[in-house]
Design a protein around this nucleic acid. Structure first.
Length: 465
RNA sequence: GGCUGGAUGGCAGAGUGGCCAUGCAGUGGACUGCAACUCCACGUACGCCGGUUCGAUUCCGACUCCAGCCUCCA
């Protein structure tokens, strides 16, 4: 039985989808006006693992992840660049898809864009006005009326009075009846893009798009809603308020939130401008190392991005590939009765405990190393199992020898030629010559590994400061 | 101030009422011509103070410290 932590109830719950065997899941995606950073990558990978795993244990998953392709930041950035907002978002959507592919994140089944759902958003806002949950201000803005919604902010467990006391009242919020009210529709200022609506030319507020897109794609009530923990308040609380006020139905059964990424033990955020983009990180580390780093901690805890943690991740991934290297797994069936598989699944079914699952994979790797000389067949079948299980995390999808030569600028043929000369020297017991060739290779960052009379090689990876 | 979460061995990071996480680094040994890779062995880890218990790092209570959210954010 799959157990998943529900942010709404603050406990792990047995996972029971509304429709047996099927899972309807919505995750808040990106606002596309800049490159993806490592925090985005964490969200993408965390829910990628959720989807992969739920599918692996037999669920038919409909995974929806939206794109916010119209909002204030997009408008500002486009205007700074002197380009249309659509030009800007198209470009960064393309970059996002490239980054996803690099990180082995499978695409969602449906990837709705806010600008593609304007009609649905307007319909929902109309409904909210009609039933008294929202009101149009004189300037063409439409606000959701928070005081009218019982149990507001039950996800973040904030008290209404304290929100009132702490609310920041700004100049453009003077049209609100209550400081906690939030915009469903924003009227366009001169020169801003927008759409015609019953309240004039304007654009949707941020929160309403997710309510409209999720209910359009998945129905009034669905199984899982995910996103970064920083979205819990106000975004997700507002989604709940809007959706339930509009449909009268319970919105979502299970809320999942991934933890934040910190950089050198400091909060990483747009405002501090200390974020690393996926692209720059990919220049320093192989994609699988980044992915390992992201799943080696539990998805709900915070993780710290630093050169040290990434180096440790690299070591770990190399260890796996050393275990897989040189085993002929073509046509081999995975070992079935090992216990490793059961332990791996037990960890994963306990709220996707990937660190514990990975611990099991390391034990499996050691077993492979132990067996490889005495029983190559069994070692190969365990290697197939290792690959299968790691595959559920989106890991170990590369060729071992190739991975161990990541970033190599040397010519493989030249290396092989030197290795052949060295083998001749070794056969003749000319150790001085053999060592000289090995030193020569070392100068090229090539490390020689002799095993069972066969000389393999790998690249000594760069160590960052 | 309110809400939420955290404090585990040199570092990273799971977990459990009594016995092993796991990875990296370290020490000793095996393998190797020497290395590398690999294997074996080793480390009196659970913030502080009380309580429950035969027994608590694990449960309960107080305390200290840290972080996230309450403003755009994955």
């Amino acid at each position: 039985m799959m157990k998943i932590y529900n942010t709404l109830t603050h406990q792990k719950e047995d996972f029971k989808p509304i429709e047996p065997g099927k899972v309807r899941m919505y995750v808040c995606g990106l606002t596309t006006y800049d490159y993806c950073h490592i925090g985005h990558a964490r969200m993408l990978v965390a829910f990628d693992v959720v989807v992969r795993y739920l599918r692996a244990i037999g669920y038919q998953v409909t995974y929806v992840r939206n794109i916010t392709d119209i909002d204030d930041k997009i408008i500002r950035r486009a205007s700074e660049n002197g380009e249309g907002f659509g030009q800007l978002t198209e470009r960064f959507i393309r970059y996002m898809h490239e980054d996803e592919a690099m990180l082995h994140v499978l695409p969602p089944d449906i990837e709705p864009r806010a600008t593609g759902h304007i009609a649905g958003i307007i319909t929902m806002v109309k409904t909210l006005i009609a039933n008294g949950s929202a009101y149009a201000a004189d300037n063409g803005d439409v606000y959701f009326s928070v005081p009218g919604f019982a149990n507001y902010a039950r996800l973040s467990r904030k008290h209404p009075d304290e929100l009132l006391a702490g609310a920041r009242i700004e100049i453009d919020e003077t049209n609100k009846h209550d400081p906690r009210d939030f915009a469903l529709w924003k009227s366009a200022k001169a020169g801003e893009p927008g759409w015609e609506s019953p309240w004039g030319f304007g654009r949707p507020g941020w929160h309403i798009e997710c309510s409209a897109m999720s209910t359009t794609c998945l129905g009034h009530t669905f199984d899982i809603h995910g996103g970064g923990s920083d979205l819990m308040f106000p975004h997700h609380d507002n989604e709940i308020a809007q959706s339930e006020a509009a449909t009268g139905k319970h919105f979502v059964n299970l809320w999942m939130h991934n933890g934040p990424v910190r950089v050198n033990d400091e909060k990483m955020s747009k405002s501090l401008n200390n974020f690393f983009t996926v692209r720059e990180v990919l220049k320093k580390y192989p994609a699988e190392v980044i992915r390992y780093f992201l799943v080696a901690s539990h998805y709900r805890s915070f993780i710290n991005y630093s050169e040290e943690t990434l180096q440790i991740s690299w070591d770990a991934v190399e260890r796996f590939y050393h275990a897989l290297k040189g085993l002929d797994t073509t046509g081999v069936i995975a070992a079935l009765d090992t216990g490793y598989e059961a332990r791996f699944h037990a960890a994963m079914q306990d709220d996707f405990n990937t660190p514990e699952a990975i611990g099991v994979l390391f034990e499996l790797a050691r077993e492979i190393n132990r067996l490889r000389n005495e029983d190559a067949g069994k070692a190969a079948s365990l290697a197939v199992l290792l690959r299968q299980l790691a595959g559920l995390l989106g890991l170990l999808e590369s060729d071992p020898a190739e991975f161990l030569r990541t970033g190599s600028a040397v010519d493989p043929a030249a290396v092989e030629s030197l290795l052949a000369q060295r083998l001749a020297a070794r056969t003749a017991k000319n150790w001085a010559e053999a060592d000289r060739i090995r030193d020569q290779l070392k100068a090229l960052n090539v490390v020689v590994e002799d095993r069972n009379g066969v000389s393999g090689w790998r690249i000594e990876r760069p160590v960052q400061d």
